Amino acid sequence: MKLIVMSDSHSDLKTIKAIRSRETDADAFFHCGDSELAVNADILQGMEIVQGNCDWNAAFPESVVAEVGTKKILMVHGHQHGVKQSLMQLKYAAEQVNANIVLFGHSHLYGAELQDGVLYVNPGSTLLPRGGRVATYAVIEQEDSLKVTFRSPDTGEAVEKVIFTTN
Rank of each mutant, 00 (worst) to 15 (best):
N100M: 11
N100Q: 15
I101K: 03
V102A: 01
L103N: 05
F104P: 08
F104N: 08
G105P: 07
G105V: 10
G105N: 10
H106Y: 03
H106T: 06
S107Q: 09
S107P: 11
S107R: 08
H108L: 08
H108S: 08
H108P: 10
H108D: 06
L109S: 05
Y110T: 12
Y110E: 15
G111I: 00
E113V: 13
E113R: 13
E113C: 08
E113F: 14
L114I: 06
L114M: 11
L114C: 03
L114N: 03
L114R: 11
L114A: 01
L114S: 02
Q115R: 13
Q115S: 15
D116S: 13
D116T: 10
G117Y: 12
V118T: 07
Y120R: 09
Y120H: 02
V121I: 04
N122F: 01
N122R: 07
N122L: 03
N122W: 01
P123C: 05
P123A: 00
G124R: 04
S125M: 01
T126M: 13
T126N: 08
T126D: 02
L127T: 15
L127S: 14
L128C: 12
L128I: 09
L128N: 14
L128A: 14
L128T: 03
P129A: 10
P129I: 00
P129T: 01
P129H: 06
R130E: 11
R130Y: 13
R130S: 12
